[in-house]
């Protein structure tokens, strides 16, 4: 799967890039720049072979939010330079400008991380964090969470169905529906909690707390290109921020 050159990069390389995008669009106060950044992300997504998925995620998670954010700035952002009116609202130049800037930034930053997670396996990212000093127990907790969530979702559906057949109402007024909440959630929580003791025993049986440095079958490759790119993104981000602060002060 990692035959694609972009996806084959080290997780930290990709993560540094997302941070670079974040720093860049905050440092450069131009919505055109930020929207251009989004266009660049589209190109990268295409090159990584995840364009479709990336675009679907952006549509699903960002579009509605961006519209609301934009309208709220346009209608309510305080300003004097009136450019029009609609119903009871006055539209100002300041509102328009801020709306464009804010939405362009949210779009660029949000998309950068959406892209990051489309081209990075979470398992690899956690491993990279572990290499950087995240305690193994922390890595365990994150990975185990990823496996437990779908498992508990499945169980909650099972319990909910069982409650329905026992006559617990899941339709009707809010109060009626609310009454189905606890009988579904409580048994799920109690059985999950009860299982932690045996899980702890399982882990200790596998030497989980042995006071030695763990080894790992799963290793990440960090090539020279990763080191180079990380340096480049870091320098780029720092340079932009320094430039921005300098402009601001002078």
């Amino acid at each position: 799967m990692a035959t694609n050159a972009i996806r084959a990069l080290h997780p930290m390389t990709k993560f540094t890039f997302a941070l670079f995008v974040t720093a860049a669009v905050i440092a450069v106060p131009s919505y055109l720049f930020a929207y251009a950044m989004f266009a660049a992300l589209l190109v990268i997504a295409a090159a990584a072979g995840v364009l479709r998925e990336f675009f679907a995620f952006v549509l699903k998670t960002l579009v509605v939010l961006l519209i609301i954010v934009f309208l709220m700035q346009l209608l309510f952002y305080p300003g004097d330079d009136i450019i029009g009116g609609w119903w009871v609202f006055t539209l100002t130049q300041e509102g328009l400008a801020y709306g464009l800037l804010l939405t362009s930034r949210i779009l660029a930053i949000g998309s950068a991380f959406i892209l990051f997670f489309r081209i990075t396996e979470v398992k690899d990212f956690v491993k990279a964090l572990e290499n950087m000093g995240l305690p193994p127990a922390g890595a365990y907790v994150v990975l185990s969470t990823l496996q437990i969530i779908p498992e508990m979702r499945r169980q909650s559906n099972v319990i909910m169905d069982a409650q329905k057949t026992r006559g617990v109402e899941t339709e009707g007024s809010v109060l009626v529906r609310a009454k189905a909440f606890l009988p579904t959630l409580t048994p799920l929580i109690l059985s999950a909690i009860a299982s932690t003791e045996e899980r702890a025993i399982t882990l200790e049986s596998r030497a989980f707390s042995a006071p030695v440095n763990k080894t790992s079958l799963h290793t990440l490759e960090r090539r020279p290109i990763d080191t180079g790119l990380i340096a480049l993104f870091t320098i780029g981000a720092v340079a932009l921020i320094v430039w921005r602060v300098a402009v601001w002060i002078l």
Binding site: T145, I148, T196, E197, A200, E204
Partner: peptide, 17 residues
């Protein structure tokens, strides 16, 4: 260790809730 193992369950409860 028991407290650590409670964390994934807490997170899953948030999602399921």
């Amino acid at each position: 260790l028991l407290a650590l193992l409670l964390i994934p369950i807490g997170v899953a409860i948030n999602f399921v809730g």
